[in-house]
């Protein structure tokens, strides 16, 4: 065994100013954009932070009933995705499904939890999930189309939470 760290004699100082909240905006509905909000939210909750995620526009896809584990990856206009074909091929029928299957493969290999599992952990650990009312109206969705354990709110709901001592991130 190699020791990585010696015992730390000094007390960790908790008196310096620290953000105690994490306020996240999730505005995209693809698999790869849905993960970071939930990875960060669940980790932050485990580290004693208060967390809220505001789902707006296509971010609502993530919290539609039965949708979390069926989100897809967009292979077109995504040159960072190492598909073994030119990016323009991504527009062909079936390529979105192929890219999505590939991403699921990579994630299983890396033992990344499924998104549905992370959403459950987030709800259990008190992460506030706020669905944007205006986006629901725009996309013609109803409260019943969404998973349980959500709040419905608008910009003010998010801003009130984020305005006090929060790190704010957008995905």
């Amino acid at each position: 065994m190699t020791a990585l760290t010696e015992a730390q004699p000094e007390a960790v100082t908790l008196d310096e100013p620290r953000a105690t909240r994490l306020a996240i905006i999730a505005s995209h509905g693809t698999l790869d954009t849905a993960y970071p909000p939930f990875i960060l939210a669940t980790a932050a909750a485990a580290m004693d932070m208060e967390v809220a995620i505001f789902f707006t526009f296509y971010g609502l896809e993530i919290i539609k009933k039965g949708k979390a584990d069926h989100l897809q990856v967009a292979p077109i206009a995504n040159p960072a995705m190492p598909l073994p074909v030119p990016n323009i091929i991504g527009m062909l029928p079936g390529m979105t499904a192929a890219a999505t299957a590939m991403m699921h493969n990579w994630m299983d290999r890396a033992h990344v939890p499924h998104l549905g599992e992370l959403i459950d952990i987030a709800r259990e650990s008190g992460v506030r999930l706020i669905a944007c009312q205006m986006s629901l109206d725009v996309l013609g969705l109803k409260r019943d189309d969404l998973i349980d354990g959500l709040e419905i709110g608008g910009a003010a709901t998010f801003l009130e939470f984020a305005s006090r001592n929060a790190i704010t991130l957008t995905f």
Binding site: M1, T2, A3, T5, A7, Q8, V12, M49
Partner: peptide, 15 residues
């Protein structure tokens, strides 16, 4: 994690 939560990391080993 320990910096943020205030718990104490007594030792860390690797093998």
């Amino acid at each position: 994690f320990v910096k943020k939560t205030g718990h104490q990391l007594l030792a860390a080993e690797q093998e």
